[in-house]
Nucleic acid binder design. Structure first.
Lengths: 146, 146
DNA sequence: TATTGTTATACTCTATAACTATA
DNA sequence: TATAGTTATAGAGTATAACAATA
C-alpha cells in the first residue's frame, strides 16, 4: 500500500530483529562475560567517550530518578570505569565521563554488539549494500555508537 | 567494504535507531500510560496470543530465574492479563497464556510500538518500499509481533 | 532420581523525601 | 528562591536454596 504502510512494516521488522531472542540475549551474556551488571553495561554504552555528561541529563535519558544516577555512577567509579568532576561553569553540576578503562570496555562491548544477527547475515551482498545505504540516511542526526 | 562491512554498518544503524532516546523512551512512557510496570509490559509482548507457554521456557527466554517468572505471572494474573493452566501432557508444567484483556492490551501496545521513529519517517517512498522488502526477507523465521 | 514450579529469604535496584551546596 | 546532587529509607525486582508435586 502506501508510504505509511511501508514505513510501519519496515519498522516492525527492525523491532523483531532487535527484540528477538538472539539479540536480546546478548546483553545479559555480555554483562556476565565482562563482569558487570546489565545496568552498568547500558550506562557505559550511553556515556560518549571523551565527553562529560551532567548527571541530571543522564537521569532524563535513562528515565530514572537522580538518586539512582548517583548509585550507578558510584558503581562505575568503584570499578574505575568513570569519574565525576564539577562543571567549570556551574559547580552544582557534576560531569560524568568514562575513564580509559571505561572507554576500553565500551569499545569491546560495541564491537560485540555490532555483530549482525543471523537474519541480517542471511541477506545477499546486493541487499546488504542497499540496506546499509538507506539506513545510513535514516540515522543521520542520531548519536553515534562505535 | 565488502559484504561483512555492509552487514555491520546496516546493523549498527538498526541498533542506533532502536536504542536511541526516541525509541527507548517509549517503553516507560507506554507502561505508565497503560498502568503497568515495564517488566509486565515486556512480559505481555512476549506472550503470543492464543498460545500457552511453559513457565520454564519463559525463564530461559527472559534470562531470569524460574522463581522470578512465578512472581511475574502472579502479577499478570492479579491484573487479569494472563492465566496458568496445567499442561495436558505433563502436569508438572504450567502453561501461561494471555486472557482476552491481555490480548487487548498487547494489541494496543504493539500498535503504538510499531509507529516508526523520525529517522524512518524521513525516508522517501522509494526507500521505504525497498527497506520493507529487504527487511521482510531478514525476519523470515523470526517470531511475529503484531 | 530428575524436573517443574513454588516458597522463604536475602540482595540489588529504584523511587520518594529530606538535606547540602551552589546559583 | 530554585536547582544539582546526595543520603536515608522503603518498596519493587531478582537470585539462591529448600520444598512439593509429578514424571
Amino acid at each position: 500500500m502506501g508510504r505509511e504502510a511501508d514505513a510501519r512494516e519496515a519498522w516492525s521488522a527492525i523491532t523483531r530483529l532487535f527484540i528477538g531472542r538472539e539479540n536480546q540475549g546478548r546483553f545479559p551474556l555480555l554483562a556476565e562475560e565482562f563482569g558487570v551488571t546489565v545496568r552498568l553495561l547500558h550506562a557505559v554504552l550511553d556515556l560518549p567517550p571523551g565527553e562529560g555528561l551532567p548527571m541530571r541529563q543522564l537521569a532524563q535519558q535513562w528515565y530514572c530518578d537522580a538518586s539512582n544516577v548517583t548509585a550507578i555512577v558510584d558503581s562505575l567509579e568503584d570499578r574505575g570505569l568513570a569519574h565525576r568532576e564539577p562543571s567549570p561553569v556551574d559547580r552544582r553540576v557534576k560531569l560524568v565521563s568514562l575513564t580509559d578503562a571505561g572507554v576500553t570496555l565500551r569499545n569491546a562491548l560495541v564491537d560485540r554488539l555490532l555483530t549482525p544477527p543471523s537474519g541480517i547475515m542471511g541477506l545477499s551482498a546486493d541487499e546488504l549494500r542497499t540496506l546499509r545505504q538507506i539506513l545510513a540516511k535514516a540515522v543521520e542526526g542520531y548519536e553515534p555508537l562505535g
